[in-house]
């Protein structure tokens, strides 16, 4: 199967901190990859580079067969324009740790904003789909609620629906449950589990090892800007080969 994401020797530094130190990875379409690792290990940065929220310093990333951020002419890579990068982002949907729902729009308006404004689709068609998505995340009753009137878990579910409304081929989750009250984590994970079972390709940066073990086809462990270990959930989370992975899992479970 054709890989949906390919990263080749990707490097990214913030000042003197090397967030990504030569990451290479191939992610096949149709699978759920969970990325785990200590904070500052570069896992969120990798996700943000795939969606071009960060610009990489060197290396290359392909999403859905297309080189992102640059156009190759001869032996040089020329940076793309704002509009071209915006178009490339349509391949993937992103869910943020802090939800980032548009505060001035209702739940329904948040979901239809992209299809309506970016994809320029017809309103009645888009509203119908958005209502179906709200139904899917269990929030039909909240269509007219503003984000400030929703709980964290409800906001995150609307945020997932907003990303799905663009019909992405790939969903990126950046610690989607880390900002939630403990009792609200379950409802968001349930929506993500449902999404995984529907066959969506997902890359999930998470601290929820239980979720990773249950839902992921593959788990990657990152530390200090590099992928240390990668394999089935069983291999990485239960019988890790690397000492660093073992230390991390022991620390999380402690």
């Amino acid at each position: 199967m054709m890989p949906i994401v390919v990263a080749a020797d990707v490097r990214k530094a913030f000042g003197t901190v090397q967030a990504l130190d030569g990451v290479s990875i191939e992610i096949p379409a149709g699978q759920v990859l969970c990325i785990v690792g200590p904070s500052g290990s570069g896992k969120s940065t990798l996700l943000r580079c795939i969606n071009q929220l960060e610009r990489i310093d060197s290396g290359a990333i392909w999403v859905d067969g297309e080189l992102i951020g640059y156009r190759r002419v001869g032996d040089k890579l020329y940076e793309l324009t704002d509009a071209e990068i915006a178009r490339q982002r349509l391949t993937s949907g992103m869910v943020f740790q802090r939800f980032n729902l548009f505060q001035h729009l209702t739940a329904l308006e948040n979901i239809i904003e992209g299809p309506l404004i970016v994809q320029k689709r017809r309103r009645n068609e888009v509203v119908g789909e958005a209502m179906a998505l709200l139904e899917r995340v269990g929030l039909s009753a909240k269509r007219d609620a503003y984000p400030s009137e929703l709980s964290g878990g409800q906001q995150q579910r609307v945020a997932i629906a907003r990303a799905l409304a663009m019909k992405p081929k790939l969903m990126l989750f950046d610690e989607p449950t880390s900002a939630l009250d403990p009792e609200l984590v379950g409802e968001v994970l349930a929506v993500m589990r449902d999404l995984a079972h529907s066959g969506m390709t997902m890359i999930v940066v998470t601290h929820e090892l239980g979720f990773a073990r249950e839902v992921a086809n593959e788990v990657a462990f990152m530390d200090r800007g590099a992928i240390v270990e990668r394999g089935s959930p069983q291999e990485v989370l239960v019988h890790p080969k690397q000492q660093r992975t073992r230390d991390f899992i022991a620390a999380v479970l402690a």
């Binding site: 969606n51 071009q52 929220l53 704002d82 509009a83 915006a86 178009r87 982002r89 349509l90 993937s92 949907g93 992103m94 943020f96 802090r98 980032n100 729902l101 548009f102 505060q103 904003e113 992209g114 404004i117 970016v118 994809q119 945020a159 907003r162 990303a163 663009m166």
Partner: peptide, 20 residues
């Protein structure tokens, strides 16, 4: 975060300013 969310759904810089 509002700008990032707008970018993530494919908005350009000017659309993000105007709409979000």
């Amino acid at each position: 975060g509002q700008t990032e969310a707008a970018k993530a759904i494919g908005m350009t810089r000017l659309t993000t300013l105007r709409r979000i």
